[in-house]
Write a protein that binds this DNA or RNA. Structure first.
Lengths: 308, 308
DNA sequence: TTGAGATAGTTGACTTTGACAACTGAATGC
DNA sequence: GCATTCAGTTGTCAAAGTCAACTATCTCAA
């Protein structure tokens, strides 16, 4: 079971946010429709055509209640019952033209309430923080969906973010101490300071607006001419098992090739098993192993090389 | 009005979390008491002694409903009506011995549900993320309370965090670009790399578990012997106006003095007005001004000095 | 093919919640 | 000293939520 302090924080948040949601819903009281009617209309608008069962599922609503509610909306000419097709147990439902008007109105009102109550009182910086935290909670607790992975260069603030995430991640997963953070702060600083030729590049993997991983390529420190180094590969635990690491390495390797490097090498620790398998799949071969004591742990450093 | 994408994200989160709260509340259905009874009992347990009006306020509940509900709890010998005192309109309420037992049971059950549903399925890293995001949302949206400010040294991951926060903050507030982040990454790396004598020190200001600000002191780069430099002072917008910056500077100055430095200097930009007033209050005097173009902006750099 | 079991939806009966107005008694403020 | 505000109670009613029984349909395997 989780830490008592964490549980307390989660429960405090639940109480707090129950209140917030209550406040936002109060605003909806001016309308002709009740709150659950509004919710059902919203769902129908979003889905286009659905069935009662689907709405009950996504809204966590009782089927009996929903049946009556939809009956009411049909009599108000907001919802249309379409002819049964395929599975003749279920009844396809959709909004009427009037229903879509009502939905539009609801959306505008909800947008206004959310903006006025939650976002507008905050500065741009705080707004970004709020939205980011919300996105993160959703990503952590929702079932992972089909999502698109984008590779792009870094945005302002993301170098610090990458340092922060990796320091915390390896601290919790591997028990590494602050020395590791110190080291990677230096590594990122050096990457930024490196001249633009020979070619260097950093990629951030983004899924649903979240940083899902990162890697960069630059000329190898003490390597021979024509050797590139791949550094700081990491994938957010939340997004593991979705090919993020593979995509990053593939991209980095083809960049190195295209930039005229003759080989690409990297340094890693053998305790990072999932990273190793990514390197192997990309064609890297183990060149050297070396025990060392760093970051408060006994480690086995590995040098991997790929001739391009 | 806020960005449409932000509003959409906020509303998506509200829908999502409404569902989560609903799921958690379902777990409470096994008890003998209804959900609102449980909530009232929880509030009474937390408050010790309150009045009906207070509970109605914090729970956002109708006074009429609450009146009946409390009547029910009194007849069940869970809530005790204390003799009126002071303001004789209001009736002090408290839990009976039995009521406290019930509350204890509720708490244990709620803790278990929250832990099992939300925290346990996540890794330690993800749990930290979740709890952190929740704390942040609460801090952003709740009314600021009386809180205690703690100054401490940095924890693993916080160097990256400080870089990230300041890069984003000054990007949004001042329009500074990635050059600023590159610069401060280097500055933090150098701080970490600096020898332990002459004395150096970094402070993180913490409020309610959140990083509220930071600053560090180290020997001045090109200064004469005995000159300390104060660097990277920043205060989170959320926690401004609570004396965080003042506390950090006071602490830093007295550290420099105690460590045997003869003077302490700092470099800042005149567009950072609130920082300047903190320096002035601490006794710093403007030594030099210098126009420069950095971080994608025309700036007026200022050197401030305080003889110790 | 057929029959047990699951699924979609409906209906009836009932409790709980929530909203609002009217009211009493006590405090407050000018 | 009188109007106003506030804490709490009571009546009334609509909406939300729960539970069980029922029909029509589909699924799947013997």
């Amino acid at each position: 079971m989780a830490e008592p302090a964490d549980i307390a924080q989660v429960r405090a948040f639940n109480r707090f946010y129950t209140r917030i949601i209550g406040l936002l819903e109060e605003g909806m009281h001016q309308t002709l429709h009740t709150l659950s009617e509004a919710r059902v209309i919203y769902e129908l608008d979003k889905a286009g055509t659905t069935t009662s069962a689907m709405v009950a599922e996504t809204l966590g609503m009782d089927r009996a209640q929903l049946s009556r509610l939809i009956g009411k909306l049909v009599s108000q000419d907001i919802v249309a019952v379409l002819p049964r097709a395929g599975d003749r147990r279920s009844v396809p439902l959709a909004l009427t033209r009037e229903g879509r008007e009502v939905a539009k109105h609801f959306n505008a009102m909800s947008d206004a309430t959310a903006a006025e109550t939650l976002l507008d009182p905050l500065t741009a910086f705080e707004q970004r923080d709020l939205v980011g935290s919300m996105r993160r909670i959703s990503a952590l607790l929702a079932e992972p969906e089909e999502t698109t992975l984008v590779l792009r260069s870094s945005r302002v603030g993301e170098i610090g973010w990458l340092i922060h995430r990796q320091a915390v991640l390896y601290h919790l997963e591997q028990g590494w101490n602050g020395e590791f953070e110190t080291l990677i702060t230096r590594i990122y600083a050096d990457f930024e300071a490196a001249p633009s030729t020979p070619a260097k590049q950093l990629w951030v993997a983004e899924i649903e607006g979240e940083v899902a991983g990162s890697v960069f390529v630059l000329p190898a420190e003490d390597g021979e001419e024509g050797t590139a180094q791949l550094r700081m590969l990491y994938v957010e635990p939340m997004f593991r098992g979705r090919g993020v690491g593979g995509r990053l390495v593939t991209e980095a390797v083809s960049f190195a090739k295209m930039s005229g490097y003759k080989r690409i090498m990297l340094w890693t620790q053998d305790c990072l098993a999932s990273a190793r398998s990514i390197y192997q799949k990309a064609g890297f071969v183990l060149a050297k192993e070396e025990r060392h004591h760093s970051f408060g742990a006994d480690l086995n450093g590995q040098y991997w090389v790929l001739e391009l």
